[in-house]
Design a protein around this nucleic acid. Sequence first.
RNA 1: GGAGGCUUCGCCUAGUCUGGUCUAUGGCGCCGCACUGCUAAUGCGGUUUGGGCUAACCGCCCAUCCCGGGUUCAAAUCCCGGAGCCUCCGCCA
Length: 425
Amino acid sequence: MIDLRLLREDPDRVRASQRARGEDVDVVDALLSADERRRSSSVRFDELRSEQKVLGKQIPKAQGDERAELLARASELAAAVKAADAEQDKAAEEAQSLLLRLGNVVHPDVPVGGEEDFAVLETVGTPRDFAAEGFEPKDHLELGQLLGAIDVERAAKVSGSRFYYLTGVGALLELALVNAAIAQATEAGFIPMLTPALVKPRAMEGTGFLGQAAENVYHLERDDFYLVGTSEVPLAGYHMDEILDADRLPLRYAGFSPCFRREAGTYGKDTRGIFRVHQFDKVEMFSYVAPEDAEAEHKRLLDWEKQWLTGLGLPFQVIDVATGDLGASASRKFDCEAWIPTQGKYRELTSASNCDEFQARRLSIRIRGERGTRPLATLNGTLCAVPRTIVALLENHQLADGSVRVPEVLRPYLGGRELLEPVAK
RNA sequence: GGAGGCUUCGCCUAGUCUGGUCUAUGGCGCCGCACUGCUAAUGCGGUUUGGGCUAACCGCCCAUCCCGGGUUCAAAUCCCGGAGCCUCCGCCA
């Protein structure tokens, strides 16, 4: 959630942010008035309650008629206090629910617009020229099937569309990717974490996934658990309701977990292969930093992602995601998009978001230091979302006969293999 | 799934039976000041979190004793419901 003080002092900035996101601007004024009502009702309650306490102290000392009179007055006051309390609760609840509907205030440099209005910040590497090499590239699914690495037919039988088995070398490839990613993160000072995939509503709400994104979240009705779409959720929730010593920062965690996504509203999109699936594994970087360090940390997360993709030998571009395509929590988001030869375009592989204090306020995570007790900033960035990374690896490193060259960083985790070769049918 | 115990302001802890004097005790830690030629020791003061009043500071008010209800003029304290932790039993990895 955003800072209510900012809202009161500079509502125009919040209105502009909502407008840029393409979201409801009227919430801002509704919230301002709800906040006003909340404060006035709380003042009324405070006064009555104060009076009640003063009166209450006189009762045990009083005798006879005086006591009876005090009791009568106290009884009236008690009713008034109760009513004021209820009114205060109602106003606070209204303000809170409006507050939760507001997205984070967008960073001023973010390009305004929808999904297509991103800005390309840089391009790294060059896509291969398959025509010059003299063969037509196969897509990842065809390659995966030749290698005995991916089985989507049987997954459809067992679980339906958008599911997959990684088999044989495919399974080994995931484990190698995960190990290499965790190794890079650990090297950079991240603490490796294996996290819960089922979380309570509070964690989901706190990370900002129950607003616009709610339709993409699996919910277990009977137990009121949510299946996380990313380990960002349990990693953000990890320090929920805590006050951390300022000098413990930055705190960096590398989470590895399954991720579940309903992919509502994507019917017909990316239906072939494993580019868009309901369940996948991911290594995610997550940082807790002081608010003034958030922008620098955002750049660092991006650098680690670039290091990772560069190591895998993938050509990619970095984009500054437009206002309309940011999640509710992010003030700014950098995506790395890898070149997918058979699609002839760059597709999202990783995503680094700066959430500033937005999640920390919702989850009540603060730091205590020289500047007092205040919310901290949280940031997250993908290191390796497995299926998409496999898609990019297979397609970009394929040879004419359907073999796939293994990038050097992965070889130690694949028993030194340099080449994945088609299996005999 | 069943039975019992526990949960107090960073940590430990008193208080709960018997409601008001709890504005929550004490120790540790931490911060400030004083004193001692250093460290230490000692003394004094401060030290939950959130909201609000105020131009701001000082100050003051309200809430907060795991959470939510209830009883009462009044709840850390009594009653009901729930959560978490621990122990035992059952079942299962």
